[in-house]
Design a protein around this nucleic acid. Sequence first.
RNA 1: GCCGGGGUGGCGAAAUUGGCAGACGCGACAGACUUAAAAUCUGUUGGCCGCAAGGCUGUGUGGGUUCAAGUCCCGCCCUCGGCACCA
Length: 866
Amino acid sequence: MDIYDPKTIEPKWRQFWLDKKVYQPDLAVAKKPYYNLMMFPYPSAEGLHVGNVYAFTGADVHGRFKRMQGFDVFQPIGLDGFGIHSENYAIKVGRHPKDHAKISEKHFYEQLHMIGDGFAWDQKLETYDPGYYRWTQWLFIQMYKNGLAYRRKAMVNWCPSCKTVLSDEQVEGGVCERCKTPTTRKETEQWFFKITAYADQLLNNIPKLNWPKKITVAQQNWIGRTKGLNIDFKIEGISKAITVWTKFWETVFGTTFLVIAPEHPIVEELSWRSENRQNFMNRISKALVKTEQQRKEEIEERHGFFTGSYVVNPVNGEKVPIWVGEYVLVDVGTGAVMGVPSHDLRDFEFAKKHSLEIKQVVSYSDRDIDAKVKSGQIAFEGEGVLINSGEFDGLSAWGIGKQKMADWMIDNKFAEWKTIYHLRDWLISRQRYWGPPIPMVLCEKCGWSSVPEDQLPVLLPDIKDFKPTGDGLSPLQKAPKSWLETTCPKCGGIAKRETDVSDTFLDSSWYFLRYPSVNVNPKSEIRNPKQIQNSNDQNSKRFEFRNSNLNIPWGQEVTRRWLPVNAYIGGAEHAVLHLLYARFVWMALLDWGYLSGVDSPEPFPFLFSHGLIIKDGAKMSKSRGNVVNPDEYISRYGADALRMYLMFLGSYDQGGDFRDTGMAGMYRFLERVWKAFQKQTQKSPAERDPALPEKIKNQKSDKEIKRVLNKTIKKVTEDISKFKYNTAIAALMEFMNAYEEKTSNEKENILSTDDKGKLIKLFAPFVPYITEEIWHNLYPDSQDSIHLSLWPEYDSKILERERIEIPVQINGKTRAVISADPSTAKIQSGIEKIAMEDPSVMRYIEGKKINKIIFVSGKIINLIVN
RNA sequence: GCCGGGGUGGCGAAAUUGGCAGACGCGACAGACUUAAAAUCUGUUGGCCGCAAGGCUGUGUGGGUUCAAGUCCCGCCCUCGGCACCA
């Protein structure tokens, strides 16, 4: 074979890897376990996106590099196929989600095979597999048993298009994360997970994480811990109080009104006290039906009305009117705000709109500002001196005054410290079909019970009419009675099953714990992988746990060996979704003792988030029509060229712009590599020379090219370690340039077989197929994969001998570059001497006085002349 | 508004953290091969001046520190991403 033909090479080695189980570490005995995990895809659309290929290739390069460094790399893959996204897509193409899952599973796995990643295929999993989701249900039950799952009636986010409730994390800027429809609020009873119980731990652990700043900051903000005061304002006429939360309590003397959210629980009671209850409730319901977006659009309106009731300001006994205001959100703080219009812009706007009193309590050194605040022209939020604040007058607003006022209010029982969080409990229920049924049953006598664990999984019933109904009822309500009704685990009477399914993010919150245990059975812990291979019946594998006595979803020993995940690689879009949920689940499991012996407070100590592939300067999207389908490029140029190109087009953490011409260029480069090795290993025309094998064997490398090779090994090793794949590839290109220049002159074998082997190994993580082919051409007797060979070391002695180039600057401008051997380059006198003798340097210093010489050892010399 | 990236040739991007700006690639131009084209190879390629040697200039922008700034400091502009009526 003499032309580079990926079409014949790639399938051949793909099969070889499978047959030889090259990427299948022995999970039970691995000495140097390295769990290299990529965020698994959700197979919602037509197939693998080039963005997926980008993500997986970068992760695979890392895994291959680690494998060649002698680690037992475990790199599993699976499909996050349950959930709204898959279901919506199935509806769109007019299929039942179950049927669609089969089709997309086949397609995705085919594509995942094509791209040549070193996946551990024996451990794949799909979240819609009953053998998997029985454990998702198990996880729900543990949450319930440990008091972290509870049912509550609450105002929740509702997506009118997906026809289900959503968690806060799934509402992005007021629209549904999946379908971008503006969400509304709806009061219903739902299942929640108490993630807030872990708010502090989630926050406090962040500094321990080796994660991109971007993501840790996003999580910090999302958890949003703020310390403030709860201040009670007693309602006039009844023995109740409204509590406001504030972090600006120093302005409490300036309170001229109180504003509560339309959803505030006291609203009902206040309505009875108002003059016109009908009118009162009309105005409330008008506010409640608005979407989040509508409310935002009407911000300037500052909608609100007076309730007719008053509270008393505890600090000065002043009578303060209670208003309802749409700008006050129920779930921030206490859902009630003390209106201080002189020092809060929103309160100011509200006061202006409704002609409420304004009272200054902080005076500012800037006279102009101070005058304007005093006359009620502006609100100002800044450091100043307290006024109109009783005994606190004259103290600094943000300093001692703030402190003293807090102490005083707490001492007098007006207030107490209250830390609030932006993070709220995780809403788990979904009124959809395609998910794990929530494993709970309701008995009229006994109330809610979890399904006994030995009855898991609660299989998702096959129903034809699975589409969301829109009335807030789950499609599973249409399941047959035989499914809907069951026995109450407590009294044995008739109980009804919960018909909501759980959130997709629950499926993916623990999958990394399952991978190593996919084939674990309780007795031997690790099942012989061969057994799986021989089992033709996929279902027998999947359902084997149903009646097994493995009572948790993972083997203890294998989990201790492989967890936590060594490297987690994926996109940044999950900063406050998946990554937060998974951390929470991990912490809960640790506390419950299910991860005994796993010595890590976090599931992903190291996380790398890759950039985004864009096309023509814009995010790929179907509506823009700029989505790149990897299949076309693979069939045209091969997976290797696509991989190499994706890794080259920008730095892996930044992403890059996909261009067809770049793709073709990379194919040309691989052809050059191919040809170079053909030339070097080719037997003809001297084929008939019987002494040739001996000659090749004894061939020594050209000194110069050996030096370049060593430099390249060093550079590629360092760059791959740092995920700087683009510059690693650039270094390989530079090597090829140098190499080709040399061979075109000499037409000789200038590299020894050993050095050729080293060289091709450097390419192996990026282009696994072509390197395997070249490797076997190089070593025709080898039965082993290049990908299990050891990463080359460079000879530092050769590099030490390299001459160093030293720029010579005159008054800071480079006028010459001199070269010196490494030892001379370190000595000022030596470099000075060479510099002064350089003709172009001499031109600049001739007749001038050298005032100063700056010498940086081995780097630069700068002559300051006048 | 707050937080986090980023702004470097025609384009994608490099730059060992203060030490030769533009590595590597794409594109373009010129040449070789060819009847011709494609492919391949060989050169040139930040801008301005110059026949050339060479010179000047140049990393969003205005200042500053330094022998030396893409890199550090102060002010501003633009852009991408996250959060946002958080009281």
